[in-house]
Design a protein around this nucleic acid. Structure first.
Lengths: 190, 190
DNA sequence: TGCAGATGATACGAGAGTGTCTCGTACGAT
DNA sequence: ATCGTACGAGACACTCTCGTATCATCTGCA
């Protein structure tokens, strides 16, 4: 369970808590602090030693999520590719993360820094949308806010459909891209 | 506050409660039973006289929502029109209801009858998707579940974008229909 | 006038969740 | 061996919410 060598300052309990919280809250967003401690194999007091509040823990999880998402996107994106290609790669990278972070979608994060970071993510998506428009992949007359909202929704919807088994995982990113760029109308030869 | 003539069996308190609950929970889904009573201008005891539980009240609201949605759709839909035209009219009818019932989207309704009714609504959407496919407005190779999920999401996303002022109310239904059927790619002459 | 039903105000107890504190223990470094 | 740190376990008080019970009041109606 534990790696012997760990360069980071505090290795064990904190990580176990974070892991348990993600697992547990993914299934039951209302789960108690005590339950989190239980699933982490940790005393409730210890949990409070690491995270003052439920909000505190939630905020840390949100930050981890944002960071992990940023990394996934950065790895997947190839700046030399077309914007629409980048879009699909972004979907491919991010949709699977829904499994871990779906509960954050409904959580209300009060922390300023976190919401600011989230806003920056959306801004970056907005930039991508701008490139899509410049490239002619997205019509210029559609409000950018609408496109961004669609991309955001598509990520969660795609993950949700995959998670419930109604859509194959391999198809999800393609369907999302297609839905956004071409809609679901009858395909003319692409 | 109270209208003198009221044909329905129980006119005043119950309606005030329902109204207050919708208003309040739309803004704050975690609002307390006491707060609902307060905003309804009603004693907390009275609230309990009309609705045993929070769940009880929530279930009633969900049923009202479903009923209201069904009515709106039934009024808007014109069976002689094309399926894609019906789709847009459905969007037009349902998106504004988001204002009142957005909180239900995140609520967990346990009641069997209500969830069954909700499922029937989704089934009806599924039927519409079938017609869209038959009509050639939607490609046959796209999973119906995916299309239904998209329609469901589009309703909430559209309402949300309108509510936050990022998209004009008049454009919402059009954008939703266009997004679903044609995507947001550059328009070929329609 | 007098009755019945609905209501408001209030109090009460139960239960859940939370935050804090203490105590004894295990482990590693010095 | 000793010290410091992190830990588990448990106790405790506090708050919040809920569901119920009680009682006085108000209203409409006979």
């Amino acid at each position: 369970m534990r790696s012997a060598l760990n360069p980071s300052p505090r290795p064990t309990a904190r990580d176990a808590i974070i892991d348990a919280a993600i697992r547990l809250w993914s299934r039951n967003p209302g789960a108690t602090f005590s339950e989190v401690a239980l699933h982490a194999g940790v005393g409730r007091a210890t949990l409070h030693r690491h995270f003052r509040n439920r909000d505190d823990l939630l905020t840390v999880l949100a930050e981890i999520c944002i960071e992990e998402t940023n990394e996934a996107v950065a790895t997947a994106i190839d700046r030399s590719a077309s914007a629409s290609r980048q879009l699909q790669r972004m979907f491919e990278a991010v949709i699977p993360l829904g499994d871990r972070y779906s509960f954050l979608y409904r959580a209300e994060i009060g922390d300023e820094h976190t919401t600011a970071e989230y806003r920056r993510q959306l801004d970056r998506v907005g930039t991508l949308v701008g490139e899509l428009k410049a490239e002619g992949a997205v019509a210029a007359d559609v409000p950018t806010a609408w496109v961004v909202a669609q991309i955001d929704q598509l990520i969660w919807t795609a993950w949700n459909e995959v998670a419930s088994g109604r859509v194959a995982a391999a198809d999800a990113a393609y369907l999302a891209t297609r839905t956004l760029l071409h809609g679901l109308g009858k395909e003319e030869q692409p």
